[in-house]
Design a binder for these strands. Structure first.
Length: 124
RNA sequence: UAAGUAGGCCGUCUUAUCGUCUUGAAUUUUUCAGGAAAGGAAAGUCCGGACAUCACAGAGUAGCAUAGCGGAUAACAUCCGUCCAGUGUGAGCUGAGGACAAGUGCAACAGAAAGCAAGUACAGUUCGGCUGUAGUGAAACCAGGUAAACUCUAUGCGAUGCAAUGCCAUGUACAUUGGAGCUUGAGGGUUACUCGCCCGAUUCCAAGGGGUAGGCAGAUAGACUCCAUAAGUAAUUUUGGAGCGAGAUAAAUGAUAAGAGUCCGUUUUUACGGAGACAGAAUUCGGCUUAUAGGCCUACUUUUUUU
RNA sequence: UGACCCAUGGUGUAAUGGUAGCACUCCGGUUUUUGGUAUCGUCAGUCAAGGUUCGAGUCCUUGUGGGUCAA
């Protein structure tokens, strides 16, 4: 299993993101929320993921960048829990809900919980 | 030594593992090798340029900006020198600092009177209603005050901005309804108005409806930095040498571990714990403004303490 | 990324450079057995810091916060 997070695995299309927010379903595990949609996007990765940190909660660009970097790191390390039992291709968006920074250990636990919830929903 | 003034500089570093971008090779699952990775303000968008399109942008009016004098510059509201004014014991600091001797307006309260005319008290007197003083006020017999009031003078400014602009790809509807026009000109050329100029018939306007919203170029090496040299009081410029190199696009520049160094606290050999500012490129450059823990260097001022 | 606009008591809204008003709300009286209604009164404000001016809500500069537009 590779712990990579390259261009192929990022969600970039504006159109796809609009569709995702209209039609997608969501699961949450505080302080994160995952919105996802089953879609054959044609790429090689099983999941295309985008990250988002709202400007309302973090005023400064430095803080937003920091959160996104930490989230990306945590996702990269725990990606296999999302992907291993997955059927078909998905696009997803990961949102940050809290207004202060969490440390990486706590986020890792929450991320694993999020993955479990996500997999349950996809099997239905 | 203390307090202060002006100017300049730094603003954590090294290694390993994992990750990001990129170049080349092999190959098309990917692998191997090499390389790169935020700032002094990247910020605010307050000025001025470069660049692009509109006619390599023309005229007039309107509008906007600047304002002692001289210089620097691609340009500026920036910078340098200098005069004057204000301020500080001083080193210094601050200044939109032209014109009210063209016209119009404004002046609360107080005051006789704040603008065209009038007039109080006292004193002097050559006895002419002349001269001086007092009182109010920011300003009063004076060519009054006021232009960050209208205005005038001088100088400058065409408009719009990289979501500019050019090319390629994909896709639908050369379809529907109403109206205008076809060289005697509908309409358009993003401009505040008028003119001028240019384009213009498979055309233009309105309504409802349908489609695309991807890629490439623009785009990363430039009025750059440092040193020496010559000119200049200086800003800056000339010549020579050396050096630097982010380029993403739902948006990279990161995470973890170890070590070193700085500061603070406890302890006072040593050890332990903690801290590390403001802040994140988006076409680009020169400035301005604002934020900034802590530290270093240079020159100068003042007073007193110590020697 | 670029262009632009706004800010006055708790809320809404006025004010030629010359004493910051008005309405509602809040609070306290009066009326009422009590509450409401009515009526009287008080408190409370120019987003911040500089500059021009004799004197700024108003003019100028810089900042803060909020909002709008754009292929």
């Amino acid at each position: 299993m590779k712990f990579t997070f390259g261009k192929q695995e990022k969600l970039k299309s504006r159109k796809a993101i609009e569709q995702l927010f209209i039609e997608g379903t969501s699961v949450s595990s505080y302080p994160m929320r995952l919105v996802f949609l089953k879609q054959n996007h044609g790429g090689e990765a099983p999941v295309k993921l985008g990250l988002s940190v709202p400007k309302k909660k973090f005023n400064k660009a430095v803080d937003r960048n920091r959160i996104k970097r930490v989230l990306r790191e945590v996702y990269r390390k725990n990606k296999h829990t999302f992907v291993k039992e997955l059927d078909g291709q998905y696009i997803a968006m990961l949102l940050y809900l809290d207004s202060k920074e969490w440390d990486q250990e706590a986020l890792t636990k929450k991320m694993q919980k999020l993955a479990e919830k996500f997999l349950e929903k996809t099997k239905l």
